[in-house]
């Protein structure tokens, strides 16, 4: 199973000389002009809101002046990148982004797999359905609401978690005001919210496992655990690899919203990540060129990571995005 099929199918294209190719193209255009008409608005969308920003990213190498516009502003070479790499805050940003992201990956990658494997063992269909329905629900809670739920539960005075801690004779903790606890709060809230959603893909993979494999395992006297290790896990491996590739490729692009909303002056030391920094210096301080440079740096790292992980995966497991 390939979770995402982002590649065009080059295999089906007929090999033809370029002359024939254009002839055919002309014929298709004449006969099916309505299809081409149809794609104009969406293509315009992609040009305007996706490709034009990519072109605008040259701003990172220019000193943006509002009156001159992007293309008229003077070139400054790699000035903003030098500024970025020499900024003492830079390494903190990288560290915060990476740590938070890796911590998140370490929790949100295996837990849905475990949930799917457990659910697959359940024989009562009603119980299985109930667990799925309920664990899937938090995914649809908006980030703003999610963050306020976190705040309500972790509030220093009335928060339920502190009430429980007090009842057990422990001191109250200001979870959101403590930089050492910020990452755990973020990641475990994420686990709470997305595990049910992420597990769907694995359940589908498990449903697709050849039943004769289970029969064979049963005849061979395999225990449930042996069956999971030898039949279930190989069955979901392709899906898991694709999900892992995508997650690693996105390591530097952590969601902005939740981090930004959870931030406060007390936890900033560990909660300031690249995307929140770009927002602050770019839009709040109007330092467009520098913010663009930071953003561009981030996008490039992401692209490199994705391509690299995909290549490695193709080598060792024959699963890849393209």
């Amino acid at each position: 199973m390939k979770a995402v099929s982002v590649q065009p199918q080059t295999g089906t294209r007929e090999r033809s000389t370029s002359k024939n190719y254009w002839k055919e193209a002309k014929k298709s255009l004449r006969k099916h002009w309505q299809l081409y008409l149809l794609v104009i608005p969406p293509v315009l969308f992609f040009i305007l809101f996706k490709y034009l920003p990519m072109a605008n990213a040259v701003l990172a190498f220019k000193n943006y002046q509002v009156t001159k516009g992007i293309w008229g502003s003077p070139w400054v070479g790699t000035k903003y990148f030098d500024m970025l790499f020499n900024n003492p805050q830079f390494w903190t940003l990288i560290k915060n982004t990476l740590f938070l992201s890796l911590y998140q990956l370490a929790a949100t990658f295996p837990i849905p797999i475990i949930l799917a494997l457990l659910l697959n063992e359940v024989r009562s269909l009603r119980f299985k359905k109930a667990v799925q329905l309920i664990t899937y629900a938090p995914f649809f809670i908006s980030t703003v609401v999610m963050v306020s739920i976190i705040m309500i539960f972790l509030a220093p005075r009335l928060g339920l978690l502190n009430v429980i801690l007090n009842a057990m004779g422990m001191e109250s903790t200001n979870f959101l005001g403590d930089p050492t606890k910020f990452r755990s709060v973020y990641v475990w809230a994420e686990v709470w919210q997305t595990t049910g959603y992420s597990c769907v893909i694995y359940l589908a993979a498990l449903a697709g496992v050849d039943p004769s494999l289970y029969e064979a395992a049963k005849v061979d006297g395999a225990s449930r655990l042996q069956k999971i290790i030898n039949v279930d896990i190989p069955g979901i491996l392709p899906a898991a690899v694709i999900i892992l590739i995508l997650s690693v490729g996105n390591i530097m692009s952590l969601g902005f919203e939740k981090v930004y909303l959870l931030q406060n002056p007390l936890n900033l030391q560990s909660s300031e990540i690249i995307s929140t920094y770009v927002y602050k210096i770019g839009l709040l301080n109007a330092n467009y060129s520098f913010a663009t440079a930071v953003g561009l740096f981030n996008s490039v790292i992401n692209l490199i990571l994705l391509v690299a992980v995909n290549a490695v995966s193709r080598r060792i497991s024959e699963n890849s995005l393209w």
Binding site: P8, A25, P53, M54, N56, A57, L59
Partner: peptide
């Protein structure tokens, strides 16, 4: 015709983006 090229044109935006500020300026 050209659906493969168009598909690539679209999926590339999945992999790379101009970033916050350039989009904001558009």
């Amino acid at each position: 015709f050209g659906r493969n090229v168009l598909m690539m044109f679209i999926t590339f935006t999945f992999l790379f983006s101009g970033g916050l500020i350039p989009t904001y300026l558009v």
